[in-house]
Structure formats: C-alpha cells, structure tokens
Design a protein around this nucleic acid. Structure first.
Lengths: 232, 232
DNA sequence: GCTCTGAATTTTGAATTCAAAATACAGTAT
DNA sequence: ATACTGTATTTTGAATTCAAAATTCAGAGC
C-alpha cells in the first residue's frame, strides 16, 4: 500500500535537545527495547532477523548491531549461529535484581539527603503532587510515567553517574518483569503512600529515614512483582 | 612482505574449553578490552577502524560490532559519524564507581555470611593462603591475578547472579583506573591484611563484620586509586 | 599573513553479497 | 512405522560495496 514511503526519517525522533542525528542502530535498538519491554516480542521467542528487518525496513547490519546492544542489556540472548531469542523472565533473577536494587536505592537515599538542593526538592515535590493528581483521577498510564520520571530524577539528583546508569539499566529488566507479572493494582495506593514518606524524609533531609524509605519502597515493589510472577 | 598470508585463523583462539566457536566479534571484543585495560590504547585516543581492522585482520563488520559492545561497557565512546575513542579515566567517575562498589561489596558480604558452604569457605581460605605465598615471594603478577580470582569467587559464592554481573562490569573500569593510576605498592601488604580480616569474618560467619570488612577493603582500595589518579 | 570557500580525500554508516552453518525435508533401509 | 542419511533450503556470519558525512588541503579574497 504505502510502498512509496522509502523515505526514512530517523531524525524525527531526535527531537531538538542533543542536536545530533541518531544512528540507525540506535533507533532500531530503542524500538526493539520497547517491543521486548511491552511483551510485543514474547519471552523465549526466537527472533527472525529477516522478519524484523522487513518490519523496520532496514538492512541486517543495523539490526544486528542493535541486537548486540540489547544482548548487553540482557533483554535478548545471542545463540551462536542460531540467531537471537528474547530472554525469559526468570523469577530467580528478578529476585536477585531487587536484592541489588534495594541497596542501590538505599545508597541513593543517603546521597540525596546530603546533596539535593532546595530547588530540586521543590521540583520533586511538585512532580509528586502532580502524580497524586493522576492517582486521584485514576489516570493509570500518566501515573506510571510520572512515577518512572520521579525515580529517574531521584537517581539523577543523587549526583552519582554510575549509580544513575546502573539504576537505569536494572530498571529496564524490572519494567519487563512488571509487565510479565501483570502487576495488580492493589499496590497502587500503597505505593503512593510510600512515595509520600520518601518525599517527607527528603524534605527533612533525614539521611537514615530517607534511605530506609527508599529501601522499603523498593523491597515492597519487589515483593509485589515476585508475587505476581509466582501467580502466573 | 607477507602478503601471501590471506589465511585467517580465528579458530586458533577458540581453544577447546567451551566447545562452541566464538563469533569473530567476541574475539575482537576481548582483544580490544585487554588493549584498553592495559593502556595499549591510550585514553582519549581516537580509534581508526581501518588500522584496527588491519592489525586484527578482520573486516570492519565484526570490529564495529565489537566496538558497540565495548561502548556498552563504557570502555570506548562512539561519536556519531566520527568513529570511536577510548574513554578518558575521569577521577570523578572513578569516585562514583567506588561509592557504588562499596555498597555492592557490603551486600556481597551479607549474602556470603549466610550462603557460603563450609567447602566454599575452605576453598577461599586455600586461595587466600596461596595468595599470601605469592606475597611473601613478592610475585606481583601472580598475586594480582589470584587476588582478582578471589574477588570474583566471592561474588560467585554470594549466589546473586545480578550482583556478580555488576561487580564484573564495574571491575573492568576499576582495573583500568588502577592501571591509569599506576598503583603504588604501598598498599600491597595492607591489602593482604584486609583480606585476612575478610576471611576470618567469613569463617566466623559474622554477617556484620564480613560486610564491614569487605566495605572497608573496597573503600581503601578506592582511596588509594583516587590518590594515585590525583598524583598524575 | 590570515580566514574563508570549496573541491579532493578519507572515514564512517548502511546495504548488499558471498560463504558457512543450521534447519527442513525427502527418500531409503530396517 | 520409525530412524537414519544425504540433499535442498533457509538463516546466520562476515566481507565487500556503495553512499553520505567529515576531514584535509589548496587557492581565492580580504
């Protein structure tokens, strides 16, 4: 039907911020990442290079480069001479993941209490309030997106680049586990309350309380996800 | 001179152990990794694809795939349309790195105290004693290698796969920072003593003491590396 | 002399091609 | 009918080719 559309528009995604064109493999990787995270590519399923190339309308070269990136992120597995498959969500690994994340969050908390500026705390508070609005209006996707943004912002403000990278990387897998577990809504309001605790501890700049609150929040999230996974 | 040598011998490196052929890009990645770690490729230096292709005797495809892997590991930076360069060792980032590593080690300690079997503890003790032998004989490279193996084994035995992966990944950068800092030997015996503390706490299965000892060891290592970096 | 412009060259990005491995499949023997 | 062998097909791995971007460099203009 639309086979006139040979025009690729990778710059469409570039926005305006970084002012640089993305390589094709980066675009493909981002797409793939989303497909894996949202379960569009089922865990365990083999990935046919040809099929994906056709659907993305790119050659195999950038696709294979993208697969290598995803493999490093742990979202796909590369089998030698037999292509790639989407990694399974292994509850055991997810448990390990949260075990680590809990500690990273605690570290983040300690750093935040020391390093966050008043302006940054106000910014987080504003985001938090907006998130509560979405909660009250039961706007689930908006709530979820903002929730993610807040967590990311917390990691950023903690001022440790390595920590930010690790949390981002691990969060990929967590997001995937969430989808796979089909997170029940029960924790929605519980989670909102935990966020309130975090914000309050941060505003008091209470080191230990903040670390504990963040640790606690992550631990409970983990428990909920694992429960969801077990109940499949 | 030797332009008769069109024969590539990638299988020469495959050895016999894993019983599966490594892809070319994996071999290249491993070589590159070593070159970066040992400072053979200087931090900040631009990487010419052509030159490297010639020296490895492979085409650009596997080399570029390998570069993508290294980029994910943070050893090289990919500049759009301008190739790759070896990432600089940024003391600020190294500090962040250790800040995180210290917590990961503490977690590792807690897990080890609970999960290590008697046999595994004995194994670690044996490795430790052997390392002390190398220390007494002043066999530096052997000491260093065994040191690395012990740390890796500790991570393995802690039984958290994600933790093992992270420590392995971060350890890459730490190793590089060490080389860059030209680690002075002063800490050699101090480090051996710290290891003794770790072993003893593990043998007592003293949760807190072990976590503290491992945290402490990593913190001091970090301080030494950072000092070395500052003194360049 | 210095800077700017614009071709020539080099280098990178991505598609295509070629070769090797794996898979699917048909036919034979048991 | 089932298991096995050898061949055809498909799919992956890696080299090559083609196009686009960056770099270099020469010469014109100030």
């Amino acid at each position: 039907m639309d086979d006139t559309a040979d025009v690729k528009a990778p710059e469409a995604l570039a926005g305006s911020a970084p002012l640089r064109r993305l390589s094709l493999y980066e675009v493909v990787a981002e797409q793939l990442r989303e497909m894996v995270l949202e379960g569009e590519l089922m865990p365990g399923s083999r990935i046919s290079e040809k099929r994906l190339c056709e659907s993305f309308e790119v050659s195999r070269t950038p696709l294979r480069e993208a697969l290598k990136v995803l493999a490093n992120e742990g979202l796909v597995e590369l089998l030698p001479n037999r292509g790639a498959k989407v990694t399974e969500v292994d509850p055991r690994e997810v448990a390990d993941l949260f075990e680590v994340m809990v500690e990273l969050e605690a570290l983040s908390g300690h750093l935040l209490a020391r390093r966050a500026s008043d302006a940054e705390i106000a910014e987080l508070r504003a985001m938090h309030q907006q998130m509560l609005d979405h909660y009250r209006r039961q706007e689930r996707p908006e709530y979820f997106r903002l929730n993610q943004r807040i967590h990311r912002r917390l990691a950023e403000i903690s001022g440790n680049g390595v920590l930010l990278e690790l949390e981002t990387a691990l969060n990929l897998k967590i997001t995937r586990a969430r989808y796979a577990a089909n997170m029940k809504l029960g924790r929605w309001d519980e989670s909102a309350r935990e966020h309130e605790c975090i914000l309050e501890a941060l505003e008091r700049r209470d080191d230990e309380a903040l670390a504990d609150a963040m640790r606690d929040h992550m631990r409970k999230t983990g428990d909920a996800v694992l429960e969801g996974l077990a109940a499949r």
